[in-house]
Design a protein around this nucleic acid. Structure first.
Ligand SMILES: [Zn+2]
Ligand SMILES: [Zn+2]
Ligand SMILES: [Zn+2]
Ligand SMILES: [Zn+2]
Lengths: 152, 152
DNA sequence: TTAGTTATGTTATAATATAACATTTATTTA
DNA sequence: TAAATAAATGTTATATTATAACATAACTAA
């Protein structure tokens, strides 16, 4: 299992990486998109769309719901952030590559989120669903429980 | 993998089973709760809360959002239905036992949902998260893709 | 009974998300 | 470059999903 945690020092790195990926793929990482991605990454944990909107308004007072949702759509589509379906919330991705194999550990106690990747889990899902003649495209796996720190 | 599909002939059986489980556990399966469960089961696939409310209003015109959400909460809590987090929708459970190990196959083409259980997937999740010192409580696993019928 | 609990009724509002159309900015092509 | 095209953003309005808060009713237990 690979384990990812975004540290404050990683934010600039993540932003630069996003910039590189966008340039490589002919995507426009506009100021708005950079600002929103930056706000999400700075948050550290997960963030709700309207809280994010409030933050964005401090930079751009004219921002409105479509501003944030359109930007979130772009960032989601290109893998710079993820949506946590069980929380209706968004979280930055610290390894924005083409990966559809990540899942999330959500601590019920401290609300910390851990994004993880596991080929093993992915393989089991593929094998199990294929026995059911189902061709998976995208899996949502969100595991709520208690994290290491909260166990002590 | 165990595969469950609710057939129309199963609805009465499911309702009776719910009744038995409630009696066994000192729960009150009131008329409202029966009506809502019945509407969900009749739907066959997944159902949105407000569509369900519209259906319920045909039986009880005074029904309002809290009516449906409170009833859904009861049915969810006791495992008679499940929530599909990635669709903000609800679906009946055809095997309402104490099971936290089910997951869902969602066909992007025909919208059919298949509820499945797999000890194997569950074990891999447990083993993988425990290596990360995380104690899982509840896992949301929703796999979107293409079902058997839509592949042909 | 009568108190306590659980369920439902009711009003209002919070929280999440999108439709539709206008304007601006960037990119392409003539 | 200039015009045409496409992509992004601005703006208003509204749709969708869900809960808070408090009143009343129905069950349960003593
Ligand atoms: Zn990621
Ligand atoms: Zn924790
Ligand atoms: Zn089930
Ligand atoms: Zn299908």
């Amino acid at each position: 299992m690979t384990k990812y945690t975004i540290r404050k020092t990683d934010i600039n790195k993540a932003l630069k990486q996003a910039d590189i990926i966008c340039k490589r793929n002919g995507l426009r990482l506009t100021k708005l998109r950079q600002d929103v991605l930056s706000l999400i990454l700075k948050e550290g944990g997960y963030v709700k769309a309207y809280d994010l909107l409030d933050e964005l308004k401090k930079i751009d007072p004219s921002a409105k719901p479509p501003t944030i949702y359109r930007t979130l759509d772009f960032l989601l589509e290109h893998g710079f952030i993820h949506k946590l379906q069980s929380l209706n919330a968004f979280i930055g991705c610290s390894h924005p590559q083409d990966h559809k194999e990540c899942y999330f550990l959500i601590c019920n106690n401290c609300q910390k989120i851990e994004e993880c990747c596991s080929k093993k889990i992915n393989n089991v899902i593929k094998n199990t669903t294929s026995k059911n003649n189902f061709v998976p495209d995208q899996a949502v796996l969100e595991i709520a429980g208690t994290c290491q720190q909260c166990l002590n």
